[in-house]
Structure formats: structure tokens, C-alpha cells
Design a protein around this nucleic acid. Structure first.
Length: 466
DNA sequence: ATGTCC
């Protein structure tokens, strides 16, 4: 740093030793060719306007340290920022205020860079469902969610509607015998997938402990809105899959990482909340710095849970197709509860949290389901950077689970299903189609984010009982 | 979402 003296730092208010060492390191790394005069004027500007630098790739470290020093906070305590972090909201009219407020709170974290709210958004714990958040070198366990790697898999099958109609009875039987939903019991046939041999299961005491549970639950589905269903998909002409724009039988599944991911999420949320202190209302958004051991452990564990969730879908699809003697033509899959290291529009690297959001980079295929009696859409991303390359993960809840239960009777649901030509095996009132927003309206709110490649209509749906 | 506090 040329001949800038420590005394000069003192004279401009950089007195704290931690602050000084960050400044010295930053200067040595990034401001080698600046004059002392320039450096001092930059430091004074950061000192007087720290909030405006919290998103700066280089100067944010100084700004954050300065803010924490100024407020006389310990190194692990943080204040919320007043600066407005960029946010784009899609389908704002249909999104409840509580979800927007949660997103605004998330954007006031000093680690937040950019955010987006998808048209199916509703309030969740910490980050709203349908929330996308870019942060700098930190991961928020509640920004990923409790079901790490909750995801979709669609297999387009080499069969037409005649097969679905002719083998209706067998399909129902297999959807009952070859899937497992809920917490008790498991599949009749022992499952294997190479993910079970993954060495990451030996990386931490927690993962070692969870390995047995992962073995038992491989190939099972969860509860709530999780499903496995057969239906028909009509592909668009000139779709990007390279398949003729015909109608095909298809298998669609929605589930996550079961007990493995839930335990990882619970454990590291606690670690984050113990080690990253925030104002009370923001505490669920506590993060793990990715340079710390806990941050790296979570990152490894989250990725393993994601791979495990994928393996569960792989087993489900392989089991059902094998029993029914069917052949896959094409497979589409995507996580919608996960975090990725990605580049932002300006080239800066960020951690992108998608909590109930579909990755939608240019050309990337994904699946956006409606409900048990409404279409799911096979989409290709448009790479819209305002949405952080994301789209909705479904139609989104219009009613709480309680409201949904209270507003629907068994006979009314039967009528809805019959009108849609859907057979439901298991399922609950909480998942009734009217508890969800209109999927067509949600799709209309994100035409700048994805293009529709195919429309899937469920025919035989398996969900958890109750 | 989750053997819903091993």
C-alpha cells in the first residue's frame, strides 16, 4: 500500500484493529496502484456512507466491518441495512403482503445482493416460499428450506393414451404398491442407488448418523404436497427437447430429501442462529459464512441431500417404469429448494437461494406443477437476470392448510376430480385444487421468465393419505 | 417438509 501510514488510518476514523487489518489487506490486494490520496478519499467515503458499499464486491468487507465497529457490535452481530437492494416481483397483485415483507426483510441483510419474488410466492419461515435471494459468500439454511432438494422429475414415456386407458387398473395398483408416502414403513423391495455409497456420508458425525435413515427411505416420497402421478403431456411443436410435438404418456414426481435433508436443515439452522446474531425479526435468516467450517459442512451436506433427493426420484421412476414395462424417451428434473453458486449479470459470484423457485437459465428445462387436477408445465428458461434466472415452482398456495381443510368436503373434491378426469389415490383436503392459485394466471405472470414446451395433465395421482 | 425434541 505504498507508504500509507497506520497513523493516517487513525486520523480518518479507522481506529479499530480488525477494521485496520481488513483495510490493509484490501489495499494490498485491490488498490496497489492507487495513490494514498485516492485511497484516503475512498476510505472516507466508505466511512461516511457504509450502507452504499455493502453490495460492492471489493469494498463491502470494509463497509461491513465499519458498520459493525460503528455500532460497537461483536463480530458475529449484524444490523439490517437501510439501502434498497434490487428486487423484482412477478405477479405482485396475486402475492400476499406478508410474503413481500419477508422478502424486504431478507433484502436488508448485509449479505444480500439481489432478490426476486416469483408469482406463486407466499409467506414461509425465514425467506418466503417463491423467494429468490442472492447473497455474498454466505448461505442461509432457511433460505433453502426444511426440505433440501425438494424437486420435480418428469419422464416422457414411449407410450400413448391407449396404454394409459387400457392398463388403468394395473397403473393404479403399481402406484400403490411401488411407491411409499409418509413417515411410517417403507417400500417392500429394498432399494439401491450409488448415492448410498457416497463418501460424503462419512464427512461429518451428523451425516454418519443419518446414513441408515437414508438407506431405509431411498425411493420413498414424503407427505403434504408430494406426489407421484401418471398423465399425458402434449409437447409444443418445435419444442427444445427435439421430440415431435405429440401427446405422450408421462410420469411426474414431486418430493425431496426426506429425513436426511430435514435433519441437516434443522441442525444447521440452529448452528446459524447460534453464531449469526440478527435483530429478532430477522433471526430466522441467520446465515453461515462459506469460509467457515460450519458453512462448508452445510454446503457439503446440502449438496448430498440434493443428490439423495434426485436418487429417490430416480428409484421411483425406475421402479414404476420397470413394473409396467415402459420405456423412457426423455427426462426433465429440477430442484426447487436449493442454493447454488452462480454468476450474477455483472459477473460477480453469488450464492443464489431458490426456496420454492425453479432454475430458469437460458434454455434450462424445468417443471412447474399446478395441482392434482390442473396442468403442470414443462418449461424452458429465458435466462432473465432480473428474476435471477428463476421462475415459480408451482401455482402457489392460495389458502393455508387449515383454510383448505375447512373449505372442502370429500364429495366436492370427488366432483372436482371427476370433472378433471383424475383418479386420486390417497391425498388430503389440504391439497385440494382450490387451495392453490390458478396455474394459468401464474404462468401468465412469468412469460418473461420461461417459455412453455409442454403441458402435462395428471390422470392417476398418488399422494400421502391424510 | 420432518419418526414434528434421541
Amino acid at each position: 500500500m505504498g507508504n500509507l501510514k497506520i497513523k493516517e488510518l487513525d486520523s480518518i476514523g479507522y481506529v479499530d484493529n480488525r477494521l485496520k487489518s481488513i483495510v490493509i489487506n484490501t489495499i494490498a490486494k485491490h488498490f496497489k496502484h492507487h495513490t494514498n490520496e485516492d485511497i484516503i478519499s475512498i476510505l472516507i467515503h466508505i466511512r461516511d456512507n457504509p450502507d452504499t458499499y455493502v453490495n460492492d464486491a471489493i469494498k463491502s468487507k470494509i463497509a461491513l466491518a465499519f458498520i459493525s465497529e460503528k455500532h460497537d457490535l461483536p463480530a458475529n452481530e449484524y444490523q439490517l441495512m437501510q439501502t434498497l437492494t434490487p428486487i423484482k416481483i412477478y405477479g405482485a397483485d396475486e402475492i400476499e403482503d406478508a410474503a413481500k415483507q419477508q422478502m424486504a426483510l431478507a433484502l436488508s441483510l448485509p449479505i444480500s445482493i439481489q432478490g426476486a419474488l416469483m408469482p406463486d410466492a407466499h409467506s414461509g419461515y425465514g425467506l418466503p416460499i417463491g423467494g429468490v435471494l442472492a447473497t455474498r459468500n454466505a448461505v442461509i439454511p432457511y433460505g433453502v428450506g426444511m426440505d433440501i432438494g425438494c424437486r420435480m422429475t418428469l419422464t416422457i414415456i414411449d407410450a400413448d393414451e391407449k396404454f394409459l386407458n387400457r392398463y388403468d387398473h394395473q397403473i393404479k395398483k403399481v402406484l400403490f404398491s411401488d411407491t411409499h408416502f409418509g413417515m411410517e414403513g417403507g417400500l417392500a423391495v429394498a432399494q439401491y442407488h450409488e448415492v448410498l455409497d457416497d463418501s460424503r456420508f462419512k464427512a461429518t458425525p451428523l451425516l454418519k448418523k443419518l446414513h441408515g435413515k437414508a438407506i431405509k427411505q431411498l425411493g420413498t416420497s414424503g407427505s403434504g404436497n408430494h406426489f407421484v402421478e401418471f398423465g399425458m403431456i402434449k409437447l409444443a411443436d418445435n419444442n427444445t427437447l427435439g421430440l415431435p410435438g405429440n401427446s405422450y404418456m408421462a410420469l411426474l414426481s414431486h418430493s425431496g430429501s426426506r429425513g436426511l435433508g430435514a435433519n441437516i436443515a434443522r441442525h444447521y439452522t440452529q448452528v446459524a442462529m447460534d453464531t449469526c446474531k440478527l435483530p429478532r425479526q430477522a433471526q430466522p435468516l441467520a446465515w453461515l459464512n462459506l469460509d467457515t467450517e460450519a458453512g462448508q459442512e452445510y454446503w457439503l451436506s446440502m449438496n448430498l441431500a440434493g443428490d439423495y433427493a434426485r436418487a429417490c426420484h430416480d428409484r421411483i421412476h425406475a421402479n414404476l417404469l420397470k413394473t409396467l414395462g415402459l420405456k423412457a424417451l426423455h427426462k426433465t428434473e429440477n430442484h426447487h429448494n436449493f442454493a447454488w453458486r452462480e454468476k450474477l449479470a455483472d459477473g460477480a459470484e453469488a450464492i443464489i437461494h431458490r426456496k420454492g423457485a425453479t432454475p430458469a437459465h437460458e434454455g434450462e428445462l424445468g417443471i412447474i406443477p399446478g395441482s392434482m387436477a390442473t396442468p403442470a408445465y414443462l418449461v424452458a428458461g429465458k435466462g432473465n437476470t432480473d428474476s435471477l434466472n428463476s421462475a415459480s415452482h408451482g401455482a402457489g398456495r392460495a389458502m393455508s392448510r387449515q383454510e383448505a381443510k375447512a373449505s372442502m368436503t370429500g364429495s366436492a373434491l370427488k366432483k372436482t376430480l371427476a370433472a378433471a378426469g383424475v383418479t386420486l389415490i390417497g391425498g388430503s383436503m389440504e391439497e385440494n385444487p382450490s387451495a392453490y392459485k390458478n396455474i394459468e394466471a401464474v404462468m401468465a405472470a412469468q412469460t418473461n421468465l420461461v417459455s412453455i414446451q409442454g403441458k402435462f395433465m395428471p390422470r392417476i395421482v398418488r399422494m400421502n393419505n391424510e
